[in-house]
Amino acid sequence: MKKITMTRRIVQVFCLILLVYGGYIFKEWKQSPETEQSLFPALKAPAGSISITKLEKGSILWPSGATPVIENYPPSLVCRFNPKGGMFKACILHFFSENLTWQTQLKYLLPYITLFILLCFLLGRMWCGWVCPIGTTGDFLTFLRRKMNIPVKRFPHNFRINLSFTGYGLMAIALTISTIIGMPNFARYQCYWFLPYCQICPARLICPLFGLIRPNWKDFSTSITTTFTLLAWIVLGLFIAAFYFGRRVWCHMCPVGLINSWFNKGAGVELHKKPIKCIKCGYCADACPMGLTKMYEMDKDGIYNQNSCIMCLRCVEVCPRKGCLSVKFFGKGIRIKDFFRRKNAE
């Protein structure tokens, strides 16, 4: 295995452990009285609204996790439904859904949003490729498939583009429902429609498993919960299939990833291409887990950060020509490739 991929795997596993179990380590620190005042105070549900911790036991959303150590929303799919040692609060979509329902004032949200945007601009979608615990889980499924010698399924370009529209559609529906149930007239629906995307998100079913906690995987009490249960199963099936047969096909429609992707083009991590060095061998396009081909097609000097790129840097790694593809951080070469390359190889 090459060095960049190896580093990436180590970072992924480290982040998975940190985000999922990190809370156990930092709990002591949190409980000491001096640090009780955290940087951002927790957002509280207003009186009369449903909060996830107030839900009745047995509800489909019943959390298996306790209060998180750090009340924040990093740009990766850290989940509300992690085991008890979850490090961060939740993902950004959870944040928007929850606060739209609670109708929190903007001034309370601003610090969270500012930090989120800052993190996004710093690393772009590198959060998806290097940090996201669900992405790591999916990569493990891909690894299993490879070991079982099952060929990868390569999806056509249009299909992948349409997947992102599906993701935007789901996001729009989820946010609309969250806004509607926040209105006083519709408040009685909150117990069913609270956090609508979370109810079908595969992370809700997968993340509790890390703490060996049984996720609340079925609820047939009412017609609405039955629908959500079935939808969640279908989405989980699609998730597993997408990661198992394709590579990172799922990431085309993950709403959190889509929000990150808006910042990808101006992100601090930049992918450069020098076409004069390119021999059009297609290695970069073939290795891209998202199935992107722009790096291969372009024949002008420049930065080619694409919205769908998860910055796994696999293209930079496999490129056989030194200096053709390179990674830069705010215009400064980090020369990852030279740093890691086998000595004297080129």
Partner: peptide, 26 residues
């Protein structure tokens, strides 16, 4: 000699595809 075989998918068909990229596309 210049291009190495870059095996991304280490399944049988993946390796053969990587070979075709090295030998034909490159």
């Amino acid at each position: 000699f210049y291009n190495p075989v870059e095996i991304d998918e280490d399944t049988e068909s993946g390796i053969i595809r990587a070979l075709s990229l090295k030998d034909i596309a490159g």
